[in-house]
Amino acid sequence: MTPSTLEQHDTELRERVAADVPWQTIVWDDPVNLMTYVTYVFRSYFGFPRKKAERLMMQVHTEGRAIVASGNREQMEHHVQAMHGYGLQATVARAET
């Protein structure tokens, strides 16, 4: 194996790994939205059971942010757009590795 093939191989691997890294939908705390509203949005939009929706809502409230979904970038952008539609502060981020 020549160094150039090795390098080629490496690049492909890196690209494959990069493409597999999931993205995240992050919802951020804001002082405006009611806790009951945030919970209802999580339950209705994501279909989370009440306990999970409330846990994520509390995480947003106490820690300032919560990851509410992971997946490919297109899905995460779709979720973030929906969250903005509901008036929640949400961002798309690459998952930390």
Binding site: E77, V80, Q81, H84, Q89, A90, T91, V92
Partner: peptide
């Protein structure tokens, strides 16, 4: 800005595209 938040605060290009 509150109604239409920045989806990519750390990536200007992605933010504009979004």
């Amino acid at each position: 800005g509150r109604l239409l938040p920045n989806a990519y605060p750390e990536d200007l290009e992605a933010s504009e595209e979004f």
